[in-house]
Design a protein around this nucleic acid. Structure first.
Lengths: 132, 132
DNA sequence: CTTGAGCTTCCACCTACTGGAAGGTTTAAG
DNA sequence: CTTAAACCTTCCAGTAGGTGGAAGCTCAAG
């Protein structure tokens, strides 16, 4: 499948997919005409990259995460350790999202678009910090 | 409080804090000696920025999110709409994190660092895609 | 067989930092 | 008091991760 279709399915712009190939993150096959050719497996990896990057994982982290899915890495105990470390990081991100959501939800509830002058937002922003 | 202390409390490197000031994202007061001076409110915003950036929100999105907490924005109905739109995005990110976690958890469970050649990872990666 | 969409590479530009130099300030030790 | 470490300042260059656009090739439709 061509890069445009792969783009549609993965959510990544063609430019970005080419860039990822350029930096050795994910290499496409080539059709006889020179066009990049993507398989379902490629699609999965691209969609995975889209998700992971959108969640704040760096390219290097994505490279590690992708390595987890490659045969050569699966034989090593380091891999499991890396995955577990990423799981901890994911839990932290989920917690942060919950806090962010709480802050914003608070805003939506209490500052409902009229001229009410009081806003408890900074309080909820303060989550986890010393009180003012 | 000085930039170093603000850095310790917010988790953002001093360089990044200065950069955020340079692009007009968050402006510090100045002490008589010319040093930047941060209040608790500044700290909250910096910690908020740290969280939001780490979760994949762009600088421009962070600028919008910060605007939600400023008086001038609170009088507008657009603000509520923006916040609700961000809430949808946060829910999506949480869902994606759960999927990512499922994939990785699967890996940790089934590929336990020995030489087992079979791995169901690409299946769980395929979450939401057409089957291979 | 031409027109347009889609692909290729290459190069420049953009965003979001990050490192380092050069120099002023504050703190703590001698 | 002074000197050294650990701050802080600005400025400038470099890096990471794309993104836009030009020039040119390819493919499917009319």
């Amino acid at each position: 499948m061509n890069i445009g279709t792969a783009s549609d399915h993965s959510g990544l712009p063609p430019k970005t997919i080419r860039y990822y190939e350029e930096i050795g993150l994910i290499k496409a096959d080539r059709a006889p005409n020179g066009y990049r050719d993507y398989s379902e497996t490629h699609l999965h990896k691209l969609a995975f990259l889209h998700r992971a990057r959108g969640l704040g994982f760096s390219i290097e982290e994505c490279r590690q995460l992708l390595a987890l899915y490659e045969d050569k890495s699966r034989a090593s105990g380091d891999v499991k350790e890396l995955a577990e470390q990423k799981l901890v990081e994911i839990d932290r991100k989920m917690l942060e999202l919950r806090e962010l959501k709480k802050s914003l939800g608070h805003l939506v509830e209490h500052c409902h678009g009229d001229d009410r002058p009081d806003c408890p937002i900074l309080d909820s922003l303060a989550e986890g910090l010393a009180p003012q």
